[in-house]
C-alpha cells in the first residue's frame, strides 16, 4: 500500500536529456517555471506547451509517467480552480444559487490550472531523467557560492542523498510494522480523528526507534570508511560541462526570450483580446 508512493522516481533511458548535466536541468527547470508566471497570454502558454512537448519527446519517457506525478496534486488543482472560479469578483457568466461564475474567475482559474499542470510536468521531466544522486550533486554544485555565508552545502547535499537512500527502506519497514500490529489486532482505519491519531502510536514508536538505530549504525559505518565531511574529498563522478550542456542552455534562453516576447510583450503591443487575454 505504501509502496505506491513515488518519490523522485527515475526512468532509465539513454536520451540526450538524461545525459545532460544535472545543473543544466535544475537551472532550466527554474527558468521554465519563471516563464510560466511571466507569460500572460494564450500564445505564451502555447509556446510553453510546445516546448514541454518537444522536451518530453526527446527524453523518451512515456507520457503516462508524467501523468502519474499529477495524481498527487489533483486535490490542490481542484481547490485552486474552484476558489478562483467562484470567488473572483466581476461580470457574472452563470449564477448558481448564491454563487456566480465570473468571466474573470474563469479566466484566472484556467490560467492557474495550466500553470500548475505545466509546472508539475516540467519538474517531473527533471526528476524522471536525473538520478537522485546526480540531482544532489547538481544541487551541491549550484549552491556552492552559499558557502561564503557559512551554509554547509556539502552536508546538506549528503543529508539529502542519505534521505533518498533510506526512504524506500523506511517505507518497507512501516509496511512491516503495520502488518505486525494488525496481526495483534491493531486497527488503523476506523474511529474518529483522535482515535486514529492514537492508533498510530504502536506504529510510530517502533519506526522512530528503528530510524534512530539505523542512523546510529550508518554514522558509525561512514566514520569507519574515513568520512569526515566535505574537506579532503575527491569525487568519483565529478560534474563537467560538455558541449551539449552549452547548447541546452542556449535553447532554454532562446525559449525564455520567445516566451516573454510572444506571451507578454507582443499581445500588449497589438492588443488582441482573446478569451484568455488580458
Amino acid at each position: 500500500m505504501l509502496r505506491d508512493i513515488t518519490l523522485g522516481q527515475y526512468y532509465q533511458s539513454d536520451s540526450v536529456i538524461h545525459k545532460l548535466d544535472p545543473r543544466v536541468k535544475l537551472v532550466s527547470t527554474i527558468l521554465f517555471i519563471i516563464s510560466l508566471f511571466v507569460v500572460d497570454h494564450i500564445i505564451g502558454y502555447l509556446i510553453a506547451g510546445l516546448f514541454l512537448a518537444v522536451v518530453i519527446r526527446i527524453s523518451k519517457v512515456p507520457f503516462k509517467f508524467m501523468v502519474r506525478g499529477m495524481k498527487s496534486i489533483v486535490v490542490l488543482l481542484l481547490i485552486t480552480v474552484i476558489f478562483n472560479l467562484f470567488l473572483t469578483p466581476g461580470e457574472a457568466l452563470v449564477t448558481i444559487w448564491k454563487l456566480k461564475i465570473t468571466k474573470e474567475g474563469l479566466r484566472i482559474a484556467v490560467k492557474m490550472a495550466i500553470r500548475l499542470v505545466f509546472l508539475i510536468i516540467g519538474s517531473s521531466v527533471m526528476t524522471l531523467t536525473t538520478t537522485p544522486n546526480n540531482l544532489t550533486d547538481g544541487l551541491e554544485s549550484i549552491m556552492k557560492p552559499l558557502k561564503i555565508f557559512r551554509v554547509p552545502v556539502h552536508e546538506v547535499a549528503m543529508m539529502m542523498a542519505i534521505a533518498l537512500r533510506f526512504i524506500p527502506i523506511l517505507l518497507e519497514e512501516t509496511d512491516k510494522i503495520m502488518k505486525a500490529q494488525i496481526a495483534r489486532g491493531a486497527d488503523f482505519e476506523s474511529g474518529n480523528l483522535i482515535k486514529k491519531a492514537k492508533s498510530l502510536v504502536p506504529l510510530l514508536v517502533p519506526l522512530f526507534i528503528s530510524a534512530f538505530r539505523r542512523a546510529n549504525d550508518l554514522a558509525m559505518a561512514m566514520e569507519a570508511r574515513c568520512y569526515r565531511g566535505g574537506e579532503h574529498r575527491t569525487k568519483m563522478k565529478p560534474l563537467q560541462y560538455k558541449k551539449r550542456d552549452a547548447a541546452a542552455y542556449t535553447v532554454v534562453v532562446v525559449y525564455l526570450a520567445v516566451c516573454i516576447i510572444g506571451g507578454r510583450i507582443l499581445p500588449g503591443l497589438i492588443d488582441i483580446n482573446g478569451i484568455f487575454g488580458r
Binding site: 510494522i177 502488518k179 505486525a180 496481526a183 495483534r184 489486532g185 504502536p202 517502533p206 526507534i209 528503528s210
Partner: peptide
C-alpha cells in the same frame, strides 16, 4: 509472529506491551 518481532514493541513496560493484543 513476524520476523524480528522485537521491532514492534512500543509500550513503556513489558506488561503493557503484552496487553496490547488482548486489549484490541
Amino acid at each position: 509472529v513476524f520476523q524480528y518481532p522485537e521491532h514492534q514493541l512500543f509500550e513503556v513496560d513489558v506488561f503493557s506491551d503484552v496487553c496490547f493484543g488482548p486489549k484490541n
